[in-house]
Design a protein around this nucleic acid. Structure first.
Length: 267
DNA sequence: AATGGGACCTGCGCGC
DNA sequence: TGCGCGCAGGTCCCAT
């Protein structure tokens, strides 16, 4: 559920708070979160290192440390980060700084991951990742669809096609563009793809401005919810009225994913 | 190449 | 009240 706007929010907020702080102590509450190396080694590599930069690629948060080490955090479905004085209920990994602030990697379902690498660009998830939507021009976006025979919705969610869009924003983008979630890419005209592009950009920007959607466990780093939920037009609004035509919103499992849409406004 | 399913996980909300 | 079940969505992996 943390998609691009949520991870971007976390990035911006963390950047204001923990840049140049030194990690004093590392507590691994659940080893399943730590990938690639044993938890002991993970801890010793982080110990004493200062945070030099924080950035994002798709849904992946990348924290640059001293000595060219990178802490890679993927929140997957149910992860979130907080910066506080204490541990949280679902804290799985804690980084304590010298000023006693604690960066909590919380994750209800323990599907997230943390790893340390030197060459983050060669991580498979990064290496194969599609372009950043907010760095993409309209004609570049349209061109991505050349020769694609898949349905538009799974394409938008395919991280190797386009980075950062997940199930929630894909649905919102398609509603905005008036495109049915089962529409195939090859039957989508250039003008429609351009409409999808403008919806993609405006929705992502708006969601970032509102600090993300706390549909489930996602939180801002102070623990408060994101503010975009009241602006969701279809997601989790089954049987509620479409804001455009006042007909009830439908829900259907498409490609194994819960999908909300208006069958009148989306063709 | 595209699609479908299962696996990874846990907690919540529902119906009985 | 309590239990079992279905569901939630990101990614990877395997089979068709």
């Amino acid at each position: 559920m943390p998609e691009l706007p949520e991870v971007e929010t976390i990035k911006l907020q963390l950047k204001r708070k923990i840049l140049n702080k030194k990690i004093k102590e590392v507590i691994v509450e659940d080893k399943r979160l730590i990938k690639g190396i044993p938890a002991q080694k993970f801890k010793s590599q982080l110990q004493g290192k200062a945070i030099k930069d924080i950035f994002r690629r798709g849904k992946v948060l990348i924290i640059k440390l001293e000595e060219s080490l990178f802490l890679i955090i993927h929140l997957r479905i149910s992860g979130w980060l907080t910066l506080s004085q204490t541990r949280e209920k679902f804290s799985r990994l804690l980084l304590k700084f010298a000023d006693n602030q604690v960066l909590n990697f919380c994750d209800q379902r323990v599907l997230g991951e943390a790893r340390i690498v030197r060459d983050w660009r060669s991580l498979p998830i990064i290496k194969n990742m599609g372009p950043e939507p907010l760095e993409l021009k309209k004609d570049e976006f349209v061109k991505l669809f050349d020769g694609k025979r898949t349905k538009v919705k799974p394409l938008l969610m395919d991280q190797n096609f386009l980075a950062g869009v997940g199930n929630i924003y894909a649905q919102e983008i398609l509603f905005c563009a008036g495109i049915h979630p089962q529409r195939s890419a090859e039957k989508t005209k250039k003008e429609e793809l351009e409409k999808i592009y403008s919806c993609l950009i405006s929705i992502l920007k708006d969601a970032i401005a509102k600090k993300g959607s706390s549909v489930d466990t996602y939180r801002q780093i102070d623990g408060s919810q994101g503010n975009y939920i009241p602006f969701l037009k279809v997601y989790q609004r089954e049987d509620e009225l479409c804001f455009k035509c006042r007909r009830p919103i439908k829900r259907k499992a498409i490609g194994g994913r819960g999908t909300y849409f208006c069958s009148h406004c989306q063709k």
